[in-house]
Amino acid sequence: MSELPKAKAVNSSRIFAGLMLAFALFYALEVIGLKVPFAYDPLGPKAFPLLLAILLAIFSLLVVFSPQEQEIRWPANRLLLKSVLLAMTLVGYCICLFWFGFILATIVAVTLLALLFEARWVHSLSAGILSGLIFYGLFGWLLQIPLPKPLW
């Protein structure tokens, strides 16, 4: 943490507030462009989103100009790599569910997740296989929740 310069004017809190400000503008413009042929109420569908956008802009500006906060500890190095891998595993899981079906996708995903949380290979693989079968047995078979089947 020490490598951060002391009088740094831009930190993640302000960057986020800046993004929110931009989002407020975008959000407002989107609704202004709506064509409303008729509305039964005097306010119509535009007023509330506009009000929200104005409020968001005001509060975001307050954050941008409020006193400097302590910089947030973002994941770095190894932890950052693990976070990215975690996100990729989750996205991959969602896609694989519809290709390989629930059981197979769950076995792979649980194994990978367990490895990410520093389990040993044997443990991870057995956790994967067991949870693939148990979750399917409990929810897919016993409780009849429609879970994706393999494409083939």
Binding site: L90, Y93, A109, V110, L113, A114, L115, F117, E118, A119, H123, S124, A127, G128, S131
Partner: peptide, 8 residues
Amino acid sequence: WLLVPGIT
């Protein structure tokens, strides 16, 4: 390593 896959 058991809890997190379970939640997922």
